[in-house]
Design a protein around this nucleic acid. Structure first.
Lengths: 226, 226
DNA sequence: TGTACATCAGTGAACGCGCGTTCACTGATGTAC
DNA sequence: TGTACATCAGTGAACGCGCGTTCACTGATGTAC
């Protein structure tokens, strides 16, 4: 048994095809997203071409057009996948503080930055200007995933408003946008290493983000309450 | 007089050459930065090629290599030019509030966002990840211009600390970085139109930034003083 | 003031490249009868 | 259960493109004497 090749088909011309049948791929769409993502991870989004993704997936260079209308729509699918993972990450990170929305907010911000630091180029692709809202109608699934992720923040902010940690006098979406901008800006400065001259290392980044969030939250407290 | 051609040289093969001599350009370096910038303004940085910049400047496609070692170094020069303009803008905006550093800070933030909204693609190029600090040694002039611009913010923050508008318990550079991150993040959300779903228009952007700055500044006040 | 010459900013042709996309096609798959 | 056929995911070759960069060159410029 062990000496036999795993594949019984002897006339397969190419040695290591993915599995079973050689002509049909199985799930090329998913495979292209995966290989495309790995190119982005290793060499950045600028290095990704449809041809390269196809080659890596072991199909001809025209095959991707069965699943994506053009290159941008592959990029959009990769970005969408990123938001889904980020969303799942945020959900997981905010579990476990059932009675402490402020702790959830901190956990969410921490995880957001963590994701950006771990998946830098994926993160950049998700927010790349060519995919962003003006093109929302072109990529509705991407928009949906991005909005769902943002809504996770809004929920936590609303909870913070209920406990008085954040003032209710400003709309939760507006406050969320402000917090997001603040954390997003910090994150970009971090991954672009624009804070290197301050002697900031990536290791210290979580503490920095925590401070950033705290100093911003101080400005969002409702001084009339609490 | 009016019917005569403006140029007395009759054997010029090309109708409208820049000026005087036809072989030497005069200041091709500056011209390439100018035409390169105009391409970026009109079509975004991705549309810029050295060849296109050369064509627009009216020289052969190999000529740019007399002035730039490669494409990236033209981009760096364009980015540097951007920081110089931004810096000059910020200087101008902060004049006129000699005794009110907090007003200077607001004016500076306002102008920063204004610049980004007016010169969106130039702004993006200035902060594009391929030119940013990791490559500082490759583009020392760019780094210098970027740092000088940032220092303008630090100065204003230091002044705010002197009058007690901002706590002195945190280093001015650190506080400046936080404020920058916050405003920078907001600015990016604005120019990427990521706040469109909140019904935010570009017209409202200055008010939004002002609010963002205020809510952040509240968190930076020194409650033991003032 | 005039001439010789080094310097240097341009030219134009070419190299090699990889890309996005289209096209007519072929082989595999699933379904209706 | 077997067969005919529509469907569709792939192939492979080709189109047209513009790019970054190099190279040997040439014409203009400025300087030393």
């Amino acid at each position: 048994m062990t000496s036999m090749p795993t594949k019984p088909d002897p006339k397969s011309p190419e040695p290591t095809k993915k599995s079973g049948t050689s002509y049909h791929h199985g799930d090329l769409r998913k495979a292209l997203i995966k290989t495309g993502l790995s190119v982005i991870r290793e060499q950045g989004a600028h290095a990704l071409s449809l041809r390269e993704a196809a080659r890596m997936a072991g199909v001809s260079e025209a095959a991707p057009y069965r699943h994506f209308t053009n290159k941008e729509s592959l990029l959009a699918a990769i970005a969408e996948e990123g938001f889904k993972r980020l969303h799942a990450d945020l959900l997981e990170a905010t579990q476990g503080f059932p009675n402490n929305p402020l702790a959830r907010l901190h956990a969410l911000a921490d995880r957001y930055v963590g994701f950006a630091l771990e998946e830098t180029d994926h993160f950049r692709t998700m927010y790349s200007s060519s995919l962003v809202p003006p093109h929302a109608e072109t990529h509705p699934d991407l928009s949906k995933a991005a909005l769902a992720t943002f809504d996770e923040l809004v929920k936590v902010v609303e909870d913070c408003q209920k406990t008085g940690s954040i003032s209710s006098s400003v709309d939760a979406k507006v406050t969320s946008t402000r917090l997001w901008a603040s954390i997003y800006g910090m994150t970009l400065l971090l991954i672009d290493q624009q804070m290197a001259f301050l002697g900031v290392t990536v290791d210290q980044s979580h503490a920095i983000i925590r401070d950033q969030l705290d100093s911003h939250l101080d400005g969002l407290k409702d001084f009339h309450k609490a």
